[in-house]
């Protein structure tokens, strides 16, 4: 099992975190709905590569990212149509726009490919920031599992609320019956990846391991060892630095 090595930094090695991180890495390396396991691991690797990309660094520093032209420093292992998406979601997510999205989907990526790619990039960023905060090396990326993408698309995913189609709570039936199980309130962030249902579960795993189970978020008494105001202060600062309105 790939886990974080806490032995050199004097922090507890929580079993729940070990299990969750193992689960997330297994998820990344498994075939998805629209990308193979090898492509998903390559997306994760490209996501890491983006953090040292010269073009991304210049764009991040610019008043507008669209004014800076150039070529990404890429590992060359993902389709060219995906490279700019991976780099921008990883390094400058706060300045993504609907017009940018519409230039990508469906001309360069299908909506399902896009949603799954966003999830893999985001989950990789989360694991990497966890390691960076603790002061330990990032996890080695796992070897990919064999197999083809399932090409599964929920029957009731609908557009209109976000840039991407989502499964509404009232439509979560059949194969999606357990998608929002146990949630009295389903915020849009939980529905955001529902075009690729497996990614909803991965996002919930990340939330539960690192922050709170989704069902507990609306409970102001819910907390970890850190008290809730401390948790929310850190969360708000991260989101402000990412320029995330949501």
């Amino acid at each position: 099992m790939a886990t974080f090595d806490s032995s050199g930094v004097g922090v507890p090695a929580f079993e729940d975190l070990r299990v969750a991180h193992h689960h997330l890495l297994e998820h990344i390396r498994a075939p998805g709905s629209w990308w193979s396991g090898a492509q998903r691991v390559a997306i994760a690797a490209e996501s890491r590569q983006a953090t040292s990309c010269g073009l991304c660094i210049r764009r991040k520093a610019a008043l507008s990212p669209t004014h800076i032209e150039g070529v990404h420093d890429t590992l060359g292992t993902v389709p060219a149509s995906a490279v700019d998406v991976i780099h921008r979601v990883r390094t400058d997510p706060g300045r993504l726009s609907r017009s940018w999205f519409e230039s990508i989907v469906p001309a360069r990526l299908s909506d399902g490919e896009y949603v799954e790619l966003v999830s893999v990039v985001a989950l990789t960023a989360g694991l990497d920031f966890f390691a960076r905060a603790l002061g330990i090396p990032p996890y080695p990326l796992p070897d990919a599992l064999p197999g083809d993408p399932s090409r599964y698309r929920p029957a009731f995913a609908r557009g209109g609320t976000a840039w991407v189609p989502m499964v509404a709570c009232e439509d979560a039936s059949g194969a999606e019956a357990d998608l929002y199980e146990g949630l009295a309130f389903v915020p849009n962030i939980v529905r955001a990846l529902s075009l690729v249902p497996r990614e909803v579960k991965a996002l919930q795993c990340s939330s539960a391991a690192h922050y709170l189970p989704v069902k507990d978020i609306v409970d102001p008494a819910a907390r970890r060892s850190l008290d809730r105001p401390q948790m929310e202060l850190v969360a708000a600062r991260v989101s402000a630095l990412n320029q995330c309105f949501y």
Binding site: V89, G126, I189, L203, H210, L226, N242, Y246
Partner: peptide
């Protein structure tokens, strides 16, 4: 603290890239 930083680096990217 490391966990919360990780969680919101996931959530922020998902929110901003899906336009919710």
């Amino acid at each position: 603290v490391a966990g919360v930083i990780a969680a919101f680096n996931v959530v922020d990217r998902v929110a901003d890239a899906t336009g919710i």
